[in-house]
Computed example of a mutant assay.
Amino acid sequence: MTGSSVYTIYDSPMKTSKTRQFYCGNIYFFLLPCLVLSTRIVQAQTSAAKVTGLLKAEMQTRHIPGLQLVVIRHRQIVLTQELGLASLEFKVPVSSGTLFSINSIAKVFTGTAVMQLEEQGKLKLDDPISCYLNDLPATWELVTIRQLLSHTSGLPDIEDDRTDGLVGNKGEGTAWEVVKTLPLTSRPGEKFNYIATNYLLAQRIIERLTGQPFENYIRMTQWKPAGLRKTVYGNSGDVTPQKSPTYTYYQLDRDKGERVPTKTLRQVNEIFPMSYRADAGVFSTATEMAHWLLALENGKLLKRRSIKTMWTPVGLNNGNYDGFDPPFNAYTLGWPVAVRKKHPAIAPIGGGRAVIINYPDDDLSVILFTNLSGCSPEVIAEKIAAVYLNSQ
């Protein structure tokens, strides 16, 4: 009904009772969507206020200098927030354009690239890597592409935990020759072992099949279709506009080969070799990664069946799953997984400072980037997700 027709129910005494009921019913159905929309706006404002309070409390407790947040609900961005400082030294506030180091989240681009090649018929996930690469030790030849991407290959690590560098303590060429002489850590498919060697080999396979440098292929087939303009590959020391330093309260104990907490805040200096970019080395914003995730879920990058394959946990030879600490107790093709009955999640985590948690069953995603390594962003992101899950 038009606005003038509605008003006539008050102006014309000649209308019958039945007609009055008809018009009143139309008013009801006109007002109902408005009431629903108003309720949703109030709920969104309430959720946003809760999230802001939660973030400020977590930043204070965990001493996080700055962060970006994006929440996606029903494939729409429903909340973006930027809090704190991108640079403590120069007191530069975080903006929507601040670039954060997302480290191992870069593996999601690799997994997606492999699935794109699978869709094109250029590879099969369960093919041995020896079908695509030469110059491999005989013990490596039966390892499959799926085992590389899920870190169940059993291969030795090309990185040295005790030096925070590459094995051989020299360059990439030396490290490659050294790692090939090392024994397998387990039979392929027997254990989960999170190592850089797996994604080094995945990058070589992608480059061989596409005939392109890895970075260029990712830019053209994923970043460009998703509208990513600021996201870059690089190192901590690269001069890039609006790039935040990464800070930490941890330092490497070379005797133990592990990071230990300290009371002194320092900058993290990370170098990601060119041949290891499938493993790490991306700087992005939470908003740009939200656009990438939406492009993925909306079918711009992969078909639905490929996404399902990419997000399906990879089991070990004995049928069990393995992964990081709970709740992320399994791993798939570039994505850690929380296998659980309520709110299962796929959650790539980068450098202990950045996380993307996607809840497929709940149509919810939380993207949280910080500039403090070791602040457990996945724990904070799960708390943020609970705000929305509890408001359903």
Rank of each mutant, 00 (worst) to 15 (best):
S4M: 07
D11Q: 12
K15L: 15
K15E: 12
K18E: 07
R20P: 02
Y23H: 09
C24E: 04
N26P: 00
N26C: 06
N26M: 12
I27V: 12
F30Q: 00
L32D: 05
P33L: 05
P33W: 03
Q45S: 01
Q45L: 00
R62T: 11
G66Y: 00
L67H: 02
V70T: 13
H74Q: 13
Q76N: 15
L79N: 11
L85R: 01
A86H: 08
S87N: 11
F90Q: 13
S96P: 03
G97Y: 07
G97Q: 14
F100W: 09
S101G: 07
E118I: 14
L125R: 04
L125I: 04
S130F: 07
C131S: 15
L136D: 00
L142R: 11
T144G: 03
Q147S: 04
L149A: 02
S153W: 09
P156W: 02
D157C: 12
D157E: 07
D160A: 03
D160W: 02
T163I: 07
T163Q: 03
L166P: 06
N169P: 01
N169C: 12
G173H: 02
A175S: 07
V178M: 02
V178W: 06
V179S: 00
P183I: 09
G189V: 01
G189D: 05
K191P: 10
N193Y: 10
A196N: 13
N198R: 06
L201F: 01
Q203A: 03
G211F: 01
N216D: 08
M220Y: 10
W223F: 15
W223Q: 14
K224W: 09
T231M: 12
G234Q: 02
D238I: 07
V239K: 14
T240C: 06
Q242S: 09
S244C: 00
P245D: 02
P245K: 06
T246K: 04
D255E: 15
K256S: 15
V260T: 14
K263P: 00
I271Y: 15
F272K: 12
P273M: 01
A278P: 05
F283S: 10
F283Y: 14
A286K: 01
T287I: 06
H291C: 13
L293G: 15
L294Y: 12
K300I: 04
K303W: 04
K308D: 12
M310Q: 04
T312D: 10
F324W: 10
P327W: 01
F328Y: 13
T332D: 14
G334R: 11
W335N: 05
P336R: 11
A345W: 10
A347M: 13
P348K: 08
P348Q: 11
N358W: 15
P360T: 07
P360W: 08
D363K: 11
L364F: 12
T370M: 00
P377L: 02
E378C: 08
V379A: 11
A381Q: 01
N390Q: 13
N390V: 10
Q392Y: 13
